[in-house]
Design a protein around this nucleic acid. Sequence first.
RNA 1: GUCCCCAUCGUCUAGUCGGCCUAGGACAUCGCCCUUUCACGGCGGUAACGAGGGUUCGAAUCCCUCUGGGGACGCCA
Length: 493
Amino acid sequence: MHRVRFAPSPTGYLHIGSARTFIFNWLYARHNGGTMILRIDDTDVERNTQASLDSIFEGLKWLELDWDGEVYRQSERGELHAASARQIFEAGHAYRDFTPARVESEDAADSGHGGWLFNPGMRELSREESDRRASAGEPFVLRFLVPRETRESVAFTDLVYGPQTKATADIEDFALLRSSGMPTYHMASCADDADLKITQIIRGQDHLTNTFKHQLIFEALGVEPPQFAHLPLLIAPDGAKLSKRKHGPVVSVTTYRDAGFLPHAFVNFVCLLGWSPKDDRERMTRRELLDIFSLEGVNRSNATINFSETEPFDPKAVWLNAETIRNLPVDELSAELLPFADASFGWIPGSGPEPQRLVPEDKIRRLVPLVAPLIRERIKLLGDIRDAADFFFLPTVHPDPLELIPQKGDAAMAALVLQEAEVALAEATFTHDGLDAALRASAEKLKIKAGQMFQPIRVAVCGRKNAPPLFETLEVLGKDICLERIAAARKLL
RNA sequence: GUCCCCAUCGUCUAGUCGGCCUAGGACAUCGCCCUUUCACGGCGGUAACGAGGGUUCGAAUCCCUCUGGGGACGCCA
């Protein structure tokens, strides 16, 4: 039986690292027919926000990842945590430390405070004195009494990193309960994992050294510790662990969503960071992913995710997204594209808090399925529709007169082409074949190359040189708009 | 500072017990082809075993040292 959990703390939006931890847990659970539990680690009341919690749920919903109904909040399980702490204390594995809290000093970790293990005098306090001071109301933290005298080391076998041991002499007396009575992360997490019968804890490698402490807690609680699998960390191009504070919105899952990533492309990309199917496969469906996922394929070294000021997304993620777009059936792609089209073209830019419609919704709705097949090979993100398809939606285009001039031609040729095009198109059937026949005949008549014929027309109707294939484009635009735009372009010459 | 982890192309990675590795794939990049533009697609190129010692007939693969990188060391999670 496999029971895994995803345990985010709601102190910021859902970021890529957390999403990956979720995905690996999810894959593990689904692959093994296990259960996936969601647990909100919200013991730090100071830093928790509802907005952050919303963002986490929103992100998971977008990724189309589910869990098995059970959602727990640590803040509602205080009694369990307290009881567990009491149990450890009564069993003699913890002691009260009445030392006042250390004041927030910046480099606490490296300013000569190196090998801190415990506060002097506190381990030795007799039970009577400890009880007396506690009942007198003196504040204390409950610390784990690391068994340095009776035991050399703590060991466990990580499912990814293999056998791990750490000398008890290197483990400090960590806190279980704060002076407020609230449990620390270590206490709450282990008490819950034990109570919820979690069998595998799959989490970031930044917890690897914490695991020795957790091992100790489980033992003190008298329960069999779960198995652990630590995942290599995701690091930024600057070499540091990915963090919201340092690297900004690019680490947020919603940033990917808003730019027009498809959920599965994102999941696919994230899976490739620190895990490999070992057979050179890169694009995988969700089905394939969960069929072949295994902790054995998880790597041990950290993975750099590439992004920069100019390219906010890892090029491989973008490629994967483009591939996914190209392989989507037109109707599905259209549905995905619709909100982006509406946001890009539907409204008058900067029309204030109550935006005004620029293009009617039904027009956008009608056009998107026609445009989708023409741009699917030309966009990498759904949001690219804004630049790739503007001329289909916007009422007017503004061609650069210089661009109307064809290769190895001049303004006179452009004028001639447009004049001829106007005549030919007025007669032509607006289908791919009809337009093909009409315009090639025109080129022949003018004794110019097909390309020279097409370029001025393309620029006239699209407003620029780079656009989807001409005939399909003209067909979607329709005769009226094409003739109108060609006439307008002629005036520019 | 103390402890832990890691180390193959720019990036993500393959490399089961050491020989089949003159190190494979993908992205990115460069070139060519296809082509009405842009894309897509096809073909090809550049590009890596951090260093030094061992062990061995033979090491990217095993051991040691160094170096480099990351992480943890909080009454945060």
